[in-house]
Simulated scan of single mutants.
Amino acid sequence: MTAYDAIVLAGGAAKRLGGADKPGLRVGGRSLLDRVLAVCADAGTTVVVGGRRPTVRPVLWTREAPEGGGPLAALGAGVRHTTAESVLVLSADLPFLGQATVRSLLTAAGTGAHEGALCRDPDGRDQPLVAVYRGEPLRRELALLATEHGSLAGLPLRLLTAELDLAPVAADPLASFDCDTWEDIAAARARIREHGTVLDEWITAVKNELGIELDVDTDVLLDLARDAAHGVARPAAPLTTFLVGYAAAMASSGKSPEAAAEAVAEAARKATALALRWEEETETDRGPGTP
């Protein structure tokens, strides 16, 4: 992964949301800002431009001058606190942005003679607030614009992007979905509760809430819960998975996340085998033909 810094723009008046604190609005139990911060957790420095608010991980806070001066002024304020060759720039209202898109942008920005890369949405529109910029040309053009106009306040982002050679990246169609209205918020909340995505969303939310960086095979745990519920008793399912987690934590204390994931898999394997043996004994004791 390319070393990079991140700037998250979390200001703005949110007029179409009636002045609500948009970055603090929750989708899937997590604030929009925290969801964005999760996809750039490996940034060297993360700068959030906007009013201070609680976040799940520490960030560097700053404000544009004057406050409410617009995204270009906010970007200018944020870039002063970055030093990396690549700068990831995101708005704080992207509920479906994933790490895969961030990786694609970093890769595209770091190859060839491009001065950065930006997400291109399914309608063919470029998204300058879902982008990676090379640090030197970004700082150069911001300084030139500030000199030419006397200030970055109120200037449109297109003045910046027009001067940079940015590679378009066709990412996940939902990567650039942003929440400008209450209808957008409702749509995002409904989407993450769909059958095909709700479990992954919930597991991600729990891991972020608990500060866990652990990739495990959830199918293994679900199979364990099923076998415990079916072969022993329904309440055995949550209790068994809890004990598996506890055993894995004890076995992997002080070890790498990979070792922790392997400890979960091994504990789940043992507990599953036990549940199947338990069920086998029960079936044997009932005898053939017993209802």
Rank of each mutant, 00 (worst) to 15 (best):
A108T: 06
L145W: 11
L97V: 11
V132R: 10
L166F: 07
A92N: 13
A109P: 10
F96E: 06
W182I: 00
T147K: 15
A228F: 01
R139A: 14
V198F: 09
G231T: 01
G135R: 02
L222I: 09
D180E: 15
S151Y: 09
A100Y: 03
D123C: 11
V220W: 03
A205G: 14
Q99I: 01
E136H: 13
L160E: 07
L199W: 14
T218D: 14
G110D: 11
R103Q: 13
V220I: 10
Q99N: 07
Q127P: 00
R134E: 09
G112D: 11
A205V: 05
E194R: 15
G150A: 04
E201D: 13
L159H: 08
H230S: 03
I192P: 03
A100P: 02
A146M: 07
A190N: 11
G231A: 14
P173R: 02
A143N: 05
I192T: 10
P168A: 09
T204F: 06
D217S: 09
D200G: 10
P173Q: 01
W182R: 15
L138H: 10
D123I: 00
D215C: 02
A113F: 01
A131L: 05
L159C: 02
A170N: 14
V216C: 06
A108N: 11
E148T: 04
L105C: 09
A171F: 05
C179F: 01
D172L: 05
H149T: 08
F177H: 08
V198L: 11
S176A: 15
R158D: 15
S176W: 05
E163I: 00
H230D: 11
L105P: 08
H114C: 07
N208R: 15
A190F: 03
G112K: 10
V132N: 07
A153R: 02
D223M: 05
T218E: 15
A143D: 13
D121W: 09
E85A: 15
A109S: 12
V89E: 04
L224H: 06
D178A: 08
V206M: 12
A153M: 04
G116R: 04
V216N: 03
L152N: 02
E85R: 14
R189N: 12
D126S: 12
L214R: 07
T181Q: 13
E115R: 07
D215G: 12
S104P: 01
L88C: 10
L106V: 04
G150R: 08
L160T: 05
S91C: 12
H195M: 11
